[in-house]
Design a binder for these strands. Structure first.
Lengths: 362, 362
DNA sequence: TAAAAAGCTGTGTGCGAACACAATAAATTC
DNA sequence: GAATTTATTGTGTTCGCACACAGCTTTTTA
């Protein structure tokens, strides 16, 4: 069964390919009579355009700017970047080109300068990790003025902004309930559990607040478990001594704590500290498949890691932009990434990048 | 930064596009001098071919046959089929065409007739679920004779067959250890656990044997857990009365069983039976995101479902065939699919097909 | 009725790569 | 050195679609 081409439709309808093309694209300049003939032919032959030939002929160049932190302060940013690059690899032949504008994660000036450069260069769309609230809003307002569509990832500002195509990011609240469920499954009535932040400025960070809410609400929705929840907070996990003391104190006050939920990738610091005070046997749940954590997953000091698919964030961000620009598809506004439950027994499936070799855009 | 074309290389090298083409494809008929000029130009400009234009110009038709059961006996087969169709949707413009040859799952004649048809029609490649051992081997031998490459999915016969591109399927052994680890996390020393098959002909089915081995070896490798493992087996879960009696008897003999691992998607039958005897509170792990199981995941009667990504099986099978034929890529021989741990709290990410709308082949 | 305008239709070219074939240059033979 | 063969190189066509433009028909206006 060979594929139907515009030429075939034209032949069947008894018109030229130009006329079929005009009908397909609603370009007008077609008589009612011809239009009907073409539509009839289209019905009988179920034509769908060859996307390769179509993209080739369009010969458009979609210029996209990516505004995100560099990886100097936090190597996390490499992952969404890789995702963007993977999508780019698939899309470059479709006319996509991207420019990265990296700013330093604690340099507002740097952010502003980069955002100005983007505005000066007339991009077709922007992908942004809007980590500075006010400066980002300011920049995105300018995008609205210039009618540049954009996708936000990692952090979301105003979901109702007209030119915001979508937000691609993690579902912090549910990652909290997920962590809670996992620990609840492993604990017995009468035992205690702790949610613990190892970050500075916890309550400026919506992510962490959402996780904490999710975690706590799970337990308050399941009173029959009879598990008491404690909240812990230690700002600087690089202070090994201090962290160990912190845990020692806490466990003295609540000796029945049998499981700990660390709200970020810094769970390995907690293990280090707990080992130091001979409490390496607690049930532990944390985030992200970074090297240090994988080591402790292997040694069974960490029971579960929740994988937030940071790689996919970037991948989807670019894909959504492309689909909007080239395919005129409006994406779902809110796109949460899968929360994978990763254990020693299935970690290989999430670290191997089996699919990197697959050169396809459907 | 515009993309580099053959024309650009030719211009830089001071030769014609034909010569560049000959160098790129090792077609010969190029003087040493010209070849060097082209290679130098290629180095400085980092050219990569436009895959759209390339595929369009190749104008090849890759004819692929799929030999698999129909979904009449087991709706499971719909899932890999959907995966194949999804990949097809992405690949059709690259010149791929597929024909499905469905046979009835317990009709060997039907299988043989279909396989004969395939051989008569000279396909470029075959995708097969080789569920009848001898007949499949017979068919695949003919493929070897005719030098037709093929991919096996779901079941694997001889991994060393020369024309077998790869096997795409589930990792049964590790799904067993995964189930074991999950239950082990939820149980306390001194408690008991059961692995239970709700199928006929268990020990003819390598999948089930592997799962059982994985499950048991987990516990024998972790003696410090002090958990005793029982094995159960009830052939016909549609006999509700009988199944309930079976569980009642078993739990009478081993009253400390606190968790059950059902080795297939039939875990919902176990819940039904256990509820009948007022033991719906056991910790339960099973397989597959089918409707009945999702209901019990929601109601928290099932704690974990292991998702074997049957959809991806089909997707990858076709993709690997295409990459081999069109891109001359040799795939990894053994491709196990991710084993996702699915819970009430993250089930949405695995059932929503967010990605169906994404028209991409990287 | 002729001229101008508007409506409609078909043909031709380009997108970038693949490949056939013609054209040229170099090497071989007599 | 001319004729022939062989090696090398350039040009032209094709893939299916998008779009520009020319040509034709019909309608409107003077």
């Amino acid at each position: 069964m060979d594929r139907i081409r515009i030429k075939d439709i034209a032949l069947l309808a008894g018109v030229s390919t130009g006329t079929v093309d005009r009908v397909l694209h609603n370009r007008g300049n077609v008589s009612e009579k011809a239009k009907i003939k073409v539509l009839k032919a289209l019905e009988t032959m179920d034509y769908s355009p060859n996307i390769l030939a179509s993209s080739l002929a369009y010969n458009k160049n979609w210029r996209i700017a990516v505004l995100m932190p560099n990886e100097i302060k936090d190597p996390f940013w490499n992952q969404p970047k890789e995702g963007i690059l993977r999508a780019f690899k698939a899309l470059k032949d479709y006319g996509v080109s991207i420019d990265f504008y990296h700013f330093h994660e604690n340099d507002i000036e740097d952010f502003t300068a980069n955002s100005k450069n983007i505005l000066d260069n007339n991009y077709n769309a922007v992908i942004i990790a809007p980590i500075f609230l006010n400066q980002s809003l300011n920049f995105l307002n300018k995008c609205e003025e210039k009618n540049i569509p954009y996708v936000e990832f990692n952090t979301c500002l105003d979901l109702d902004a007209p030119n915001l195509l979508c937000y691609v990011g993690q579902d912090s609240y549910h990652s909290g309930t997920l962590g809670a469920k996992l620990l609840a499954f492993g604990l017995s009535p009468g035992e205690q559990v702790m949610i613990c932040h190892l970050e500075e400025l916890v309550y400026n960070s919506q992510h962490l607040i959402d996780k904490e809410n999710g975690f706590k609400e799970y337990f308050s929705n399941h009173p029959s478990l009879e598990i008491e929840v404690f909240t812990g907070h230690y700002a600087n996990p690089y202070d090994h001594e201090g962290l160990a003391n912190f845990f020692e104190e806490t466990l003295k006050k609540a000796p029945n704590i049998k499981g700990i939920f660390i709200t970020t990738s810094r769970v390995f610091h907690a293990i280090n500290a707990l080992k130091k005070i001979n409490r390496g046997n607690l049930k532990m749940v944390g985030f992200d498949l970074i090297e240090e954590n994988l080591k402790y997953l292997e040694s069974e000091n960490i029971d579960f890691l929740i994988n937030q698919n940071p790689h996919k964030q970037g991948y989807l961000a670019l894909l959504n932009v492309f689909n909007f620009l080239a395919r005129k598809m409006t994406p779902a506004k809110l796109q949460f990434l899968p929360l994978d439950v990763v254990m020693k027994e299935n970690v290989d499936y999430y670290t191997d990048e089996l699919f990197d070799e697959i050169p396809i855009i459907l």
